[in-house]
């Protein structure tokens, strides 16, 4: 049977052919499983809130609006460093910076940006290495020296504000206090040897720094300085022969140095006194020990002497009895 299909017929043919064309139930669920697996392997990332696909049957916009809010990713989130080279670079930069920062911090004084790094990072790290109480005490003495150096540095710096100088001096006092506490703790623990040693080191260090002040403080140089100032004030054409010695120094600066000097001397005297006390106490103990020892040794000697005397007496007595018996034997023979 032949038929000439018209336009509608063609379309009908196509539609009929497509009517039952679909995925079988098993095919559909199998494909769904594969897709869900893909979903699980590639979880949603990034700006997830913004992708609302409005389906052809149209979702109610009021229902989906909650999810349309864009979540702003945090710039500090570790996620933003994932799968990039940024993280290792940051780590390397951090390490390099850390090293150079702590090195740069070594030369700082209170009021500098890196001063907290010096005190809280560098010194704490180095202090952690000291384990025994003695090592800790030594490190504390070293810290006082560091504080003292800062005070000196600031005292010599005319542009430094007085507040920072006050802080530096307070630091010096606080740290000295720590050393003193260490010494008294040694004393309490009957560790007099360590106490004396620490006190000795402390006073030695203080004396060393005092010496520095004395150099700049000694009358001869001061007169020279003052003269120079006068000369400089009167005639500006005078050439300085020794720039270091003739460097203009304000009286204000001198005053400050003197103050610091005074404080250091005070501290040193205090420590030396303490050291002497300790030594005396220790010596007394030693003397007592020696006395006890000598007394003991005397007793022993006396006992020994007695013993030997007894022995001697016994031997004499034995000899006598022997002699007597010999004599009696002889008389018997006769």
């Amino acid at each position: 049977m032949f038929k000439l299909p018209n336009m509608d017929n063609i379309i009908k043919q196509l539609k009929n052919g497509a009517k039952h064309t679909r995925l079988s139930f098993s095919e559909k669920s199998e494909m769904k499983n594969v897709l869900l697996q893909h979903v699980r392997i590639h979880p949603v990332r990034g700006r997830e809130g913004s992708q609302r696909a409005s389906t052809s049957n149209g979702d109610n916009p009021a229902n989906t609006s909650v999810f349309q809010k864009k979540s702003i990713p945090s710039p500090f989130s570790i996620q933003s460093f994932r799968n990039t080279k940024t993280l290792p670079i940051l780590v390397i930069v951090g390490l390099l910076m850390g090293g150079s920062v702590s090195f740069a911090a070594e030369q700082t004084v209170p009021g500098d940006v890196l001063f907290p790094v010096k005190v809280h990072v560098n010194e704490r790290a180095r202090g952690a290495v000291a384990i025994t109480p003695k090592a800790k005490a030594e490190w504390d003495v070293r810290l006082v020296e560091r504080r003292l150096l800062e005070v000196e540095k600031l005292a010599a710096d005319t542009s430094a504000p007085s507040e920072t100088k006050a802080i530096a001096e307070k630091n010096f006092k606080d740290y000295s206090e720590r050393v003193k506490n260490r010494i008294s703790k040694f004393e309490k623990d009957d560790d007099s040897h360590d106490a004396i040693e620490t006190a000795g080191k402390f006073s030695e260090m203080l004396r060393k720094h005092e010496g520095k002040f004395e150099k700049s403080d000694d009358p001869a140089s001061r007169i020279l300085k003052e003269e120079n100032l006068i000369v400089q004030n009167s005639t500006t054409t005078v050439d300085a022969s020794d720039p270091a010695l003739l460097a203009p120094m304000s009286f204000d600066e001198d005053e400050q140095l003197k103050e610091v000097h005074e404080k250091v001397r005070e501290m040193r005297n205090e420590t030396e006194k303490k050291q002497k006390e300790l030594k005396e106490k220790y010596r007394k103990e030693e003397v007592q020990n020696i006395v006890i020892e000598t007394l003991q040794s005397k007793e022993v000697k006396r006992a020994l002497k007695e013993n030997t005397r007894r022995e001697e007496i016994r031997s004499i007595f034995e000899k006598n009895t022997e002699n007597n018996s010999k004599k009696s034997d002889k008389t018997d023979d006769n």
Partner: peptide, 28 residues
């Protein structure tokens, strides 16, 4: 046809999970 259907949906999901807007899901 099955393969292409599957890949189409994988592409759709990848697009959705990137947070991109889809106006007409069917046409897309």
């Amino acid at each position: 046809a099955k393969d292409i259907t599957q890949v189409s949906f994988v592409r759709l999901y990848d697009y959705m999970s990137q947070g991109k807007e889809i106006e007409n899901l069917r046409a897309f």
